[in-house]
């Protein structure tokens, strides 16, 4: 094998193994069941060049004790399972279904992470974290397309997480 071929192979592997950095994603695609984790929501760009002004993420069923980390300059709100009542106090209250950071301004060429602490479901399985990215000028990118595994990657995929048995 020539050096070129070896390098090309390495490049191919690097590209194939790299997470889909072009999208709004989480920093881990595989999580142990029934565990407390810190998860980062990565926002690598705006919507078609426009600065990001809001991030909303829907928490899939089964994830519990969600606590989002506030970000300076952004208004943090949560929506709980029993309607649109904001969650307060200890994590044992009504489960958080949606977390929203609004009112900031993240230019297209900057990068930001939004942090959640959560407890993973008791049972292993496959879950999606759909995210709505609001941007300046009323632009919206909805990272909500749930593709079956093996299907071609959609334009705006929802991030897929595999919860695996706890060791």
């Amino acid at each position: 094998m020539t050096t070129t071929a070896r390098l090309a192979l390495a490049l191919g592997c690097a590209l194939a193994a790299a997470p889909a950095l072009a999208h709004v994603t989480l920093d881990q695609s595989s999580m142990p069941a029934d565990s407390y984790l810190r998860v980062a929501l990565r926002v690598p760009h705006g919507c078609e060049g426009a600065a990001t002004t809001g991030i909303r993420v829907q928490i899939p069923d089964g994830f519990r004790n969600v606590k989002p980390m506030p970000v300076a300059g952004w208004t943090l709100t949560t929506v709980t399972a029993d309607d649109a009542k904001p969650a307060e106090g200890h994590g044992a209250s009504a489960p958080v279904k949606e977390v929203s950071w609004q009112g900031g301004s993240l230019p297209d060429n900057f990068y930001q992470e939004f942090i959640l602490r959560l407890q993973t479901p008791k049972e292993p399985g496959e879950f999606f974290f759909p995210v709505v990215q609001d941007c300046e000028g009323g632009k919206v990118s909805r990272w909500i397309e749930r593709a079956a595994s093996g299907a071609p990657e959609p334009r705006y995929p929802a991030y897929r997480v595999r919860v695996v048995p706890k060791n």
């Binding site: 390098l7 090309a8 690097a14 790299a18 072009a22 760009h45 297209d108 060429n109 990068y111």
Partner: peptide, 19 residues
């Protein structure tokens, strides 16, 4: 080879990670 290596190193740094 050098160009490819350079590309490999620079790839994660370039662009805005966007489609």
């Amino acid at each position: 080879s050098l160009l490819l290596l350079l590309g490999l190193l620079l790839a994660p740094l370039s662009g805005a990670w966007a489609h």
